[in-house]
Design a protein around this nucleic acid. Structure first.
Length: 489
RNA sequence: GCCCCCAUCGUCUAGCGGCCUAGGACACCACCCUCUCAAGGUGGCGGCACGGGUUCGAAUCCCGUUGGGGGUGCCA
């Protein structure tokens, strides 16, 4: 078995491409087959090397690797079927196009886009299917000779034979199309650039691809490809069309309506292992109630034949949940490492490790880290700027209660030495102080929380105080007291 | 318009003729735990699109309807 993924570098790695790549990868790994990466960069107008870079990087990030593929960073191609960029395979396409021309399976067409457009409009007006009228196929010899002598640019069209095309789709079973409904489609542009339908077929043959697994949006392209395969005398691979990933409104997932670039998810701090797990289940399930799988486990369980037929909506909530599960399953040491890019250097590795227990259960995405524990490293004034004085008021109470709690806490904390400034001690003393002030613990803690973390929602208060240390904790409480007087009058 | 594909809770799905009073997960709601928020625990809400067949029996098979999606490029 030889399978391939064939991304086009006309944009950053897209969720759909990532999922298709994953399914191909899993299919190859499951069967012990070979996995090939081929860059389909025939669209020079839209493709860029930056996008190719993004695609390769993010595929790697997801843990998807390939046995054969293009050279990267000046290295050599991996594999003997290269080059693996279509832009480097032009002689092959030219040769195969000539074969088609010679056999009469393809022909040159000199129609201009404007002429084509006019014909299309007429057909639509007559409610006929819009397809090429074969004007250039039926050209008189003299006219053809004139065009050729003129060296006027021409495209090459594939002459579609009217016949019913059937194939046994890996995921859908028997599918049939009537190619009589197809027009003669262009396979080489008038600037000599070969087009997708053509190159994909040529390369799959040249690279000995046995299984073509792609998105359902290609299902109706397959009869074209099969026709081409037959005309060229190629072997027909198996085809499998996997369901699309959908926007919430159930249309094909698009940049306009959803976040589709893998880079964006990576930057938000989703874990690749969670992301892959999530992606795998968008259109497939092992048939049991298990739902946590590593890439290796997916590879051993995945079967292309068990892939669903219907599209799947991309559900952020579920992704978030899964990411949280993976975060919580990590050791503190692992999580500290993963979170490092979101934490400033002033926090040492040891310090970060001590911070991890404060955030682990609360973390959904790694990028949430600063919002969660930023108060630890932000300057006192910055933390103070996060809250309005009114936020210091406990739920049941006003400035008086806030002041009572804050002064009580300040006194209790001040009485403690640096070595006693530990969470359990702090809690004990603050509870005593709450009693002393005749307040409920919750109401007493609330102003302290806001003063120290700048927010009404925070990690556990006393562990937070401990992390912050005696002096900074007291300073923040004093500061809060000052803010309180400013408005209390 | 034409061609093709698809159809189980809001979402991801289990189900492949009797095990289904349709199971799980996310989300949502309630309660418990609790210094806030989480995490965790318990419970709840919620679905076989519709109509015909076939069969002793249909979420499962067939046909139709409806709905949704994809394609219909000198993009991929």
């Amino acid at each position: 078995m030889r399978v391939r993924m064939a991304p086009s570098p006309t944009g950053p790695l897209h969720i759909g491409t990532a999922r298709t790549s994953l399914y191909n990868f899993l299919t190859a790994r499951h069967a012990g087959g070979t996995y090939v990466l081929r860059i389909e960069d025939t669209d020079v107008a839209r493709g860029t090397v930056e996008f190719e870079r993004d695609i390769i990087d993010n595929l790697h990030w997801l843990g998807i690797s390939w046995d054969e593929g293009p050279q990267v960073a000046g290295g050599d191609d991996i594999g003997i079927f290269g080059p693996y960029r279509q832009s480097q395979r032009m002689e092959l396409y030219a040769r195969e196009a000539d074969r088609l021309l010679e056999s009469g399976a393809a022909y040159r067409c000199w129609c201009t886009p404007e002429e084509l457009e006019a014909v299309r409009r007429e057909q639509e007006a007559r409610r006929e299917p819009p397809r090429y009228n074969r004007r250039c196929l039926n050209l008189a010899d003299a006219d053809r000779a004139a065009f050729e002598a003129d060296a006027r640019p021409s495209v090459i069209r594939f002459r579609v034979t009217p016949e019913v095309i059937r194939f046994d789709d890996l995921v859908r079973g028997e599918v049939e199309f009537d190619n009589a409904l197809l027009g003669d489609f262009v396979i080489v542009r008038n600037d000599g650039m070969p087009l997708y339908h053509f190159v994909v077929v040529v390369d799959d043959e040249a690279m000995e691809i046995t299984h073509v697994i792609r998105g359902e949006d290609h299902l109706s392209n397959t009869p074209k490809h099969i026709a081409l395969i037959r005309a060229l005398g190629y072997r027909e691979p198996r085809f499998g069309h996997i369901p699309l990933i959908l926007n919430p409104d159930r249309s094909k997932m698009s940049k306009r309506k959803s976040q589709t670039s893998i880079t964006a998810y990576r930057e938000e701090g989703y874990l690749p292992e969670a992301f892959v797990n999530f992606l795998a289940f968008l259109g497939w399930s092992p048939g049991t109630e298990e739902e946590l799988f590593t890439l290796d486990e997916l590879a051993s369980r995945f079967e292309i034949g068990k892939v669903h037929h219907g599209g799947a909506v991309f559900d952020r909530d579920r992704l978030d949940y899964l990411n949280g599960v993976y975060i919580r399953a990590m050791s503190d040491e692992q999580l500290a490492l993963r979170v490092r890019p979101w934490v400033p250097d002033v926090i040492s590795d040891d310090g970060l490790l001590r911070l991890v227990p404060l955030m682990k259960e609360r973390l959904v995405k790694l990028a949430d880290v600063p919002g969660l524990i930023g108060f630890v490293w932000e300057p006192d004034e910055v933390v103070a700027s996060w809250y309005a004085p009114e936020l210091l008021h406990p739920k049941k109470g006003g400035p008086d209660e806030a002041r009572a709690a804050l002064t009580g806490a300040r006194d209790a904390l001040s009485a403690l030495g640096d070595s006693d400034f530990a969470a359990d001690f702090l809690e004990q003393r603050c509870r005593e102080a709450a009693d002393g002030a005749g307040m409920k613990a919750g109401d007493f803690f609330s102003p302290i929380r806001v003063a120290v973390t700048g927010r009404t929602v925070s990690p556990p208060l006393f562990a937070s105080l401990e992390m912050l240390g005696r002096d900074r904790s007291i300073a923040r409480i004093e500061h809060a007291l000052g803010k309180l007087t400013g408005v209390a009058v």
